[in-house]
Simulated scan of single mutants.
Amino acid sequence: MRRRERRISAIRALDLIEELEKEQNDLRRERRKLQALKVQREDASPNLLKDWDGYSVSEKKQRLRQSIRAVMVHPAGRGKRFDPELIEIVWA
């Protein structure tokens, strides 16, 4: 048995086009914001290590929150001591 093709009205098609165009504009705006944030981070990064010792603890925390996306600690195995090599930082 063959399925009958479903068609949408011209009015519904125009409504859908308007919705998609709005979504497209929203996504473009979001992409521009993210690109600007990326440039801002890249501009701040070269000075980060140079200025690190001059930052307060709260400034260091803020910089790390902006720069680190995730921290993964891989298992060491039973009875093994802490190994900092098992820590993986995922940078933003």
Rank of each mutant, 00 (worst) to 15 (best):
N25I: 10
S9E: 10
Y55L: 14
I89T: 13
N47I: 02
I89H: 04
S58E: 07
E19I: 02
Q66L: 13
K38Q: 15
P75G: 03
L49M: 15
R28G: 03
K60M: 06
K22M: 05
L20M: 11
K33C: 06
G54R: 02
P75W: 00
Q40H: 14
R81V: 05
I89V: 15
R6W: 02
S67H: 00
Q35V: 03
P84R: 05
G79N: 06
F82W: 12
R6A: 10
R6L: 10
K80F: 10
A92H: 13
I89P: 01
E42S: 10
W91N: 06
G77Y: 05
R6Y: 04
G79Q: 08
A70R: 13
L48P: 00
D51Q: 13
R29F: 09
R81E: 13
I89R: 03
E21D: 13
L20W: 02
R32C: 08
E5I: 05
A92L: 09
I89A: 06
Q62L: 10
K22E: 10
S45Y: 13
K33A: 12
E23W: 01
L14P: 00
W52Q: 03
N25A: 15
P75N: 07
R65L: 04
K80W: 09
P46L: 04
V57M: 06
I87C: 02
I11Q: 14
E18A: 14
A44I: 05
E85G: 09
E19C: 00
G77M: 08
R4V: 04
K50Q: 12
L16Y: 06
K38L: 12
Q24P: 00
L48H: 00
L14E: 13
I17Y: 08
L49Y: 11
L14T: 07
K61S: 02
L37I: 08
V73Y: 00
F82A: 06
R6E: 08
R7M: 12
L14M: 14
R32N: 14
K50W: 04
W52S: 01
R7A: 11
G79W: 01
R78L: 14
R4H: 09
A92W: 07
R32H: 13
R65I: 01
N47T: 04
L20V: 07
R4C: 02
Y55F: 14
R7K: 15
R69W: 06
M72G: 03
R29G: 04
K50F: 09
K33I: 11
R29I: 11
Q35A: 11
V71F: 03
I8R: 11
E88H: 11
D43P: 01
